[in-house]
Structures are given as C-alpha cells and as structure tokens.
Design a protein around this nucleic acid. Sequence first.
DNA 1: TATGAAAGACTAACTAA
DNA 2: TTAGTTAGTCTTTCATA
Lengths: 137, 137
Amino acid sequence: MDDLDRRILNILRRDARTPYTEIADEVGTSEGTVRNRVERMLEEGAIERFTVATRTGNVKAMIEVGVAVDVDTRAVSDEMADWDAVDYVWQVSGEEDIVLVVDAADTTALNDLITKARERDEVVSTKTRLILNEMLG
Amino acid sequence: MDDLDRRILNILRRDARTPYTEIADEVGTSEGTVRNRVERMLEEGAIERFTVATRTGNVKAMIEVGVAVDVDTRAVSDEMADWDAVDYVWQVSGEEDIVLVVDAADTTALNDLITKARERDEVVSTKTRLILNEMLG
DNA sequence: TATGAAAGACTAACTAA
DNA sequence: TTAGTTAGTCTTTCATA
C-alpha cells in the first residue's frame, strides 16, 4: 500500500469505471501496472468490492439501535440487513450496538423501519439521524 | 424504478463489475435493456456513482462531531472531507451535527484524527464508535 | 512493457407494445 | 413514442512473451 496505490484508489473511489489506461495516464504508469495493483488490492482486501452508491429514495438516515445485553447482536444484525431500504448494518462499540444506514423512499418508509425495529423484543432503544448531506473524503 | 431496476441494483451493489450480459441472464432480459436501465438510473441519480468499498487500514470507525451553533457546518465538513483516512462526511440531524466515517491505519491514526477534530475551536464534542462488523443490506 | 486475442460495452437500426 | 432487442464495431482487459 504505497502512494501509487492510494492515488489509484482515489480515482476508483470517485469513478470505479475509469478505464485502467486512463488511470495509468493520470498517475503516470502503464495499464498493466494499474491492473496488477488493483488485482492485488482486491486479493489483499484493501479493495473490499466494486459497488454502486445509490439513492433510490429521498431520505437517507442512520438509525442507532440499542439491544438487550443477553442478545446475539450478530443474529439481529443479520436479519436487519435483509430489511427493505437498509443499505448497511454496522455492529459498533459504544452506547448503542447496531447502526443501520438506510435509503428510504420517504419519511413514512423510514418511520415504518424505525417502528419495525422498536417492535422487536431485543431492541431497547433507537436514535435516528437524518443524513442531510454526504461528501466523499 | 420498478422491480427489474431493483434487481439490477442489488447485483451491482454486490459486484459493480458484473457484465451486463451476466446481469441480463440473471434477471431474464437482454444486455441492451440492462445497459439502458443502468444509464437511466445514473442520469436520474438512483445510482450516485460507481465506486469501490475500501479497507486500507485496520480500524473503521464513525466519529460523531458536535459543532458550536454559530458555525458554518458545511465549511467544517468540507475541510474534514480532506483529512486523511476520512471516507465520508455526513451532515446529520440530531445532537451532533457531523458524522465522519473513517478507515484508519491503526488506533493511533484514529486517535490522531479525533485529536485533530477536538482541537478545532468550532468542535464542542466528539463521540467515537468503532465499526466492529459491516454487512451489506 | 508491449502486443494480439478475448471479453465486454457501445452504436444504431429495427421491432413490438 | 417508448422500451426492448440484436448484429456489428469499437474499447478495454487480459495473457503471453
């Protein structure tokens, strides 16, 4: 993971469909080098996956969910990952245990999701924050 | 945004390099249809961008940052987006105003980042949560 | 690091609803 | 008029030297 890797990553983070030849030009190396490095980073896990950032709805939010102490957080997370509109489920340290990152159609859909979470016996608290603006690092 | 769109998105979210022909097979349509729909979703903003999910360091975390009431949150967010190891900056509603999603080399790097945030006059509080596990929705 | 072959994406003309 | 299909062409990626 050297500076060249980081420059390649920065280009891919902004547009993962940039052709290797174009990346090569930009960072001053050959197409083959870029390709080999991307493959290496994929193997090593520096690149977890190629993906798309979506905004299918109008409301993005994070829901911090607290669960009871005797509960298998992993299992709960697993189920919540299957819920509609849920993009990511993070198990986190801190007061709450799970953070849902969601992309909901509207506030009603968001509210339904929060309700669904609160109705579960294992869930002891929720705290929702709307994501008003997102910027890439 | 119909069911076919959603199925295409789900495939792309897991691997954005899946060839159109393969997606077409999986969802039961032609390559051209998949391509047209992906292009339309890009134009409409349902797909914000093609990107890579990275893990360059060993520590992922979210840092909730509270800023003073008279501060331009946008400007602060803008600067923080440029900091090393910061993947995303979200302006959010709730007690705190900014959430940094970071991918740090180690806990020292994470701590440096938190310190850097706390040293700013505008920042009145920080709360850090380690992301222990992430799952795709 | 080149180069040719293979895979994939794109263009544009066509068909059907 | 819009969505979908397809054949041919061009671009990108990949494997080999």
